[in-house]
């Protein structure tokens, strides 16, 4: 994978906006944003109601994903371009999700909705109609998804990259600062995890930094990219952004996203937790 396979800019999108084999998909944290306006011809996928199982905490299964994409009018051979607000957090999550179920050609719009808006490009309220398809998904590619046991095995041996803000890493906050802080789980981070906030990979306008800047960022934080890497955040969407950077832009193959992330890990009984600004030892502890 490389930048040109996985990332397009706004000019590319404007040039392909009427191409029937290019499907624009908006995925936002604020799922109501699409209803106000969106890029012309874009369809919406709701990260919560469309991509999460309504009962248990897990993704929709292969058949449900097939039904979703079929209803959205997406074919297996379409080029899917995903964009969203919040610097493409949930768009990155959806990108990873499309890869999880084996979609071949999926890309992100660099800068997402924010860059598009700051450029004052056209947004419309009209909802496009796409003919339903018969989409075939692959079984989940778990080589890009980490579970809690993978994380526990990685403590002190492989790379764990905590991509939350420094205050969440240290345990001073439990959630991003634009969300209420009341949570049931413990604060802190997984022992030995490096702190590389996802935001360091993005410019103010939401576009990704250059490959050289990105490589220097992770190596500077002591992440040995020759080892396996697990990225995590609070619920797996910001770490999908980092997964995208490492796996798609820098072409590092052995990278997984732990979607359970801190809301799962921080609620587990008996696992080590590290507080403060240091990575800590495998046993964890107070700063």
């Amino acid at each position: 994978m490389s930048r040109t396979d996985s990332l397009v800019d706004a000019d590319w999108v404007e040039a392909h906006i009427d191409d029937p084999k290019v499907v624009l998909v908006e995925v936002d944290e604020d799922t109501a944003a699409y209803e106000i306006n969106h890029i012309r011809n874009a369809v919406r996928i709701d990260w919560q109601s469309d991509l999460q199982d309504p009962v248990r905490r897990d993704f929709v299964n292969q058949q449900q994903f097939e039904a979703l994409l079929s209803a959205k009018g997406i074919s297996n051979d379409d080029t899917v371009v995903i964009y969203g607000g919040n610097n493409n957090w949930f768009a990155s999550y959806a990108f990873w999700y499309f890869k999880l179920y084996g979609h071949q050609d999926v890309r992100l719009l660099d800068g997402g909705r924010k860059k598009w808006e700051l450029d004052a490009r056209e947004l419309v309220a009209d909802v496009p109609t796409r003919t339903a398809t018969t989409y075939k998904a692959s079984a989940q590619d778990t080589s890009i998804r980490a579970f809690r046991d993978d994380v526990l095995r990685a403590i002190g041996t492989q790379n764990l990259v905590d991509v939350r803000s420094p205050d969440e890493y240290a345990g001073r906050l439990l959630a991003p600062a634009h969300l209420p802080q009341e949570q049931s789980q413990r604060a802190g981070h997984i022992p030995t995890a490096a702190s590389v906030p996802w935001s360091k990979a993005a410019n103010d306008d939401g576009t990704f930094k250059s490959d050289d800047e990105l490589k220097a960022l992770y190596e500077g934080a002591g992440v040995d990219l020759a080892k396996d890497t697990i990225a995590y955040c609070r619920i797996g969407e910001r770490s999908a952004h980092t997964w995208f950077v490492l796996h798609e832009l820098l072409g590092v193959s052995n990278v997984t996203n732990y979607d359970g992330s801190w809301t799962e890990y921080g609620a587990l009984v008996g696992v080590p937790v590290q507080l403060g600004d240091i990575a800590g030892t495998p046993e964890g502890g107070a700063a």
């Binding site: 607000g85 803000s165 420094p166 205050d167 600062a177 634009h178 906030p197 935001s199 360091k200």
Partner: peptide, 11 residues
């Protein structure tokens, strides 16, 4: 934050 590090963003 106080060091200039990004913490959050809202529209």
């Amino acid at each position: 934050d106080a060091t200039g590090e990004f913490t959050a963003e809202v529209p």
